[in-house]
């Protein structure tokens, strides 16, 4: 492989892409109901939907409360969600990952 970018550069570029999509592209997303919601409307079970308990939350429905411009509000909510997902993902996978430190300890335990 010739001149492959470093993992650090790859990560940075990937995060930058996700950031740009969330901030600049998400306001252009198709606002129509998605597949499931369309079926619910057409087939007649849309009315069974109940209010979301977090519908008054600070980022409910991809709008940041207090930001009036709906384009900026949506883009900003996307960035918040994207970064929160990255942070939560990092935390989860850091906890879950294969632990090398555990091996010597285990080996010592077995010896003793």
């Amino acid at each position: 492989m010739k001149h492959a970018p470093s993992t650090r550069l790859f990560l940075f570029a990937g995060l930058l892409l996700a950031f740009a999509l969330a901030l600049f592209v998400s306001p252009f997303a198709d606002p129509n109901p998605d597949g499931l919601n369309r079926v619910a409307l057409d087939e007649g079970f849309a009315q069974t939907e109940t209010d979301h308990r977090l519908s008054d939350g600070p980022v409910a429905d991809y709008a940041v409360s207090g930001v009036d411009n709906e384009w900026i509000s949506k883009g900003l909510s996307g960035v918040i969600g994207m970064l929160a997902t990255f942070a939560l993902g990092l935390a989860l996978f850091a906890l879950v990952r294969k632990r090398r430190e555990a091996d010597p300890a285990q080996a010592r335990g077995e010896v003793a």
């Binding site: 993992t7 790859f10 990560l11 990937g14 995060l15 892409l17 996700a18 950031f19 999509l21 969330a22 592209v25 998400s26 997303a29 198709d30 606002p31 129509n32 998605d34 991809y62 996307g78 969600g81 994207m82 970064l83 997902t85 990255f86 942070a87 939560l88 993902g89 990092l90 996978f93």
Partner: peptide, 17 residues
């Protein structure tokens, strides 16, 4: 970090109906 990036990327792209 790559798994974290994957999750973040999926979040961003899921917004793009």
């Amino acid at each position: 970090p790559l798994a974290g990036l994957t999750a973040a990327f999926v979040f961003a792209v899921q917004m793009l109906n």
